[in-house]
């Protein structure tokens, strides 16, 4: 691919490195091309193609068991799809792992585990550049402390994780995802045990982070989300991707089969086009 390049000006490896660096900035943050994933013979994701551009704020919604978590794990590189390709900043997810900050959904990890809040935050600083992590550096500790500070739990740094409340624990896992200075944040239901006020604070923080990071959030909090996100993906085996934050009725029907409930909930921010709302008040 470098055939036409005069070797005298730039060496091939240099040129490649240059290309790669600039390419990574231009490439979409995440690109799924005809991805299918099945588990125990059941298709969880079917022929999903999806592009998340850099500095997008994508909300992933859909019914339970629809494949939201699978989708985000495929993006993170934790699950390898049987078909299709996944590219993160133009690279394989495993090679781009250092750019990804991931927060898993299921946090019913051992409550008795002897580990402190700081220990968990520091985990976000691990990289595969280092063969082993006997000790963290001073920068690591500083970055972890900053991440905890951002999530307003720095004062809990020496606490055992088992003593935290559900909401505090979720904030801790977001802090861990942030500690590695990621370019892409993948958050799987970050607000499921956070109170409404905390949710708003959290989404405000995400909005702020969104100025420099690409963010993908799995969430049920459709109403809260709609005023922050730039696009929405509905996952129910297939993915319907919408390039705007606007949530249309068709999407909801696809995703939930229950537009009624959503409308009935007293809408804090307008999510439907007015005419749609008026035409189908049900």
């Amino acid at each position: 691919m470098d055939a036409g390049l005069p070797a005298s000006r730039t060496t091939v490896p240099e040129h490649r490195a240059f290309c790669k660096a600039t390419m990574a900035e231009d490439k979409p943050a995440i690109e799924l091309d005809r991805v299918s994933f099945s588990f125990n013979g059941r298709n969880v994701l079917e022929n999903v193609s999806l592009t998340v551009n850099q500095r997008d704020f994508l909300a992933v919604i859909g019914p339970n068991g629809g494949g939201k978590t699978t989708l985000i794990k495929v993006m993170a590189g934790l699950l390898k799809p049987q078909q299709g390709t996944v590219r993160v900043r133009g690279e394989k997810p495993a090679d781009a792992a250092r750019h990804i900050g991931y927060m898993p959904q299921d946090l019913h990890l051992e409550k008795d585990f002897p580990i402190t809040v700081m220990d968990v935050a520091l985990m976000g600083r691990m990289t595969h550049h280092r063969l082993f992590h006997g000790r963290y550096t001073r920068e690591d500790k500083k970055a972890a402390a900053e991440a905890l500070e951002r999530l307003e739990i720095l004062d809990l740094a020496d606490q055992r994780v088992g003593r935290l409340s559900g909401g505090q624990r979720q904030r801790l896992f977001i802090a861990r995802a942030l500690a590695g200075d990621p370019k892409i944040l993948l958050l799987d239901e970050p607000t499921s045990s956070v109170d409404p006020e905390g949710q708003t604070r959290l989404y405000r923080l995400l909005k702020e982070l969104n100025e420099t990071m690409t963010i993908v959030v799995v969430s049920h909090d459709l109403m809260v989300l709609s005023s922050y996100v730039t696009s929405v993906a509905c996952v129910a085996r297939h993915v319907h991707h919408h390039d705007s934050a606007e949530i249309t009725e068709g999407m909801l029907e696809d995703a939930y089969h229950c537009p009624v409930e959503i409308i009935a909930h007293g809408v804090p921010h307008r999510v439907f086009r007015t005419h749609t709302y008026e035409k189908e008040p049900e």
């Binding site: 250092r98 985990m123 976000g124 691990m126 550049h129 000790r135």
Partner: peptide, 20 residues
């Protein structure tokens, strides 16, 4: 490998993602 073992024991998925 202290911190690697800690991460592995606590959250293997995350540890794998961080290159452990």
């Amino acid at each position: 490998w202290h911190n690697d073992l800690l991460a592995l024991s606590y959250d293997p998925d995350f540890a794998r993602l961080r290159g452990v």
